[in-house]
């Protein structure tokens, strides 16, 4: 499909432009920081000499624009702070260097990302499956008990802040029933079973809440879809009820679901961060919050931009998927 290839290329270019604009904006905003990172990093007796040295080492003596270009260069080619034996190497993609933690920001992010990503991706998969199938069931059993249950559940889900439900779940399943672990993270590479076992509660909590709006959406769209003429056509062709609902009905509902999912990606990351805190996992959110406390601006900027890039890229994927799913969306 050459059309699709062009569509992807054009969207990719647009995405890069958005990322550039965003990174510049973020850079300008965060370098209005009232505190001076160099002062924090210059050691106890902070003589003007040492301050100047630190400033030079951190490349804070350059103009904001120069620093920004250095930052961009770092992402593409890596960068080096200081000279000679004391030089600190930050390999590409370098999202900055945390002097308080003496680690490249990229390394810090990569150490935390698996936790946040495990929560977010697992929950998203779970809620898409649960939300769509419950919504579908509700639509097919419209007005019956199952429908009322699903609609009621969706309402409570929409109205519940995730951290609140997370804590309730810990209380009930972790403390009272003592069924599942309530905190801690085991890397997937250590033990996939323990990994999943520790994530069960966060996944279920985050998924249950987000599934709510997908139940509502799937139910409403499916009811609309099942009234369309082409559904009658499918029946008139001799398609069985299962085929009619899944192949002809649900197929049309996929497009709005994918659209909404694209819009929810940013919220997914936020939800994962709240969930991290509830279940005491040291993910990206914890890194960000502690860095704000430490006035570690390099990490704050790095984490923020990295996450934003991630969401923007994921959105690109959703956009392309949308184009693939709906033949009426012009790639031209």
């Amino acid at each position: 499909m050459p059309d699709l290839v062009w569509f992807v290329i054009r969207r990719l270019l647009a995405t890069v432009l958005v990322m550039l604009a965003l990174s510049l904006a973020v850079y300008l905003i965060f370098y209005a920081l009232p505190a001076d990172p160099a002062r924090l990093g210059c050691g106890k007796p902070c003589t003007p000499d040492r301050l100047e040295q630190a400033r030079h080492f951190m490349q804070l003596d350059q103009s904001t624009m120069q620093q920004y270009l250095q930052f961009l260069k770092g992402i593409v080619a890596g960068r080096t702070f200081g000279e000679g034996a004391a030089a600190v190497q930050c390999n590409a993609p370098c999202f900055g260097y945390s002097f308080p933690l003496a680690r490249p920001v990229t390394t810090l992010i990569l150490s935390r990302l698996p936790i946040t990503a495990s929560i977010a991706i697992g929950a998203a998969v779970l809620w898409l499956i649960a939300g769509v199938s419950l919504g579908l069931g509700a639509a097919l059993r419209r007005g019956r008990l199952f429908d009322r249950f699903a609609v009621g559940f969706a309402l409570v889900g929409v109205a519940s802040p995730s951290f609140l439900v997370g804590l309730l779940a810990i209380l009930v399943f972790g403390f009272w029933l003592n069924m599942v672990p309530v905190n801690g993270y085991v890397p997937l590479t250590d033990s996939p079973v323990d990994w999943a076992w520790h994530l069960v509660l966060p996944w279920v909590v985050l998924a249950a809440l987000n599934a709510a709006s997908y139940i509502r959406l799937t139910r409403a769209q499916m009811l609309e879809e099942l009234n369309l003429d082409h559904i009658t056509t499918a029946r008139a062709k001799g398609a069985g009820e299962g085929r009619v609902v899944l192949l002809h009905g649900l197929r049309g509902v996929l497009v709005p679901i994918v659209t909404i999912f694209g819009l929810d990606l940013g919220g997914l990351l936020g939800g994962a961060i709240l969930t991290e805190k509830v279940f005491s996992m040291q993910g990206l959110g914890e890194l960000l919050i502690s860095s704000v406390g430490q006035l570690d601006v390099a990490v704050v900027v790095g984490v923020t931009l990295f996450s934003a890039f991630l969401v923007i890229l994921a959105n690109l994927v959703v956009d392309v998927l949308h184009g693939v799913l709906d033949p009426r969306v012009g790639h031209a």
Partner: peptide, 27 residues
């Protein structure tokens, strides 16, 4: 239901008024 399904579209077929809405836009 199953016997009727085998009749529909096979022995008795239907042509609708509005072909645009009668066809599935996604296939």
């Amino acid at each position: 239901a199953e016997e009727l399904r085998k009749v529909r579209g096979n022995e008795v077929a239907l042509v609708f008024q509005d072909a645009l809405s009668a066809l599935n836009p996604y296939y």
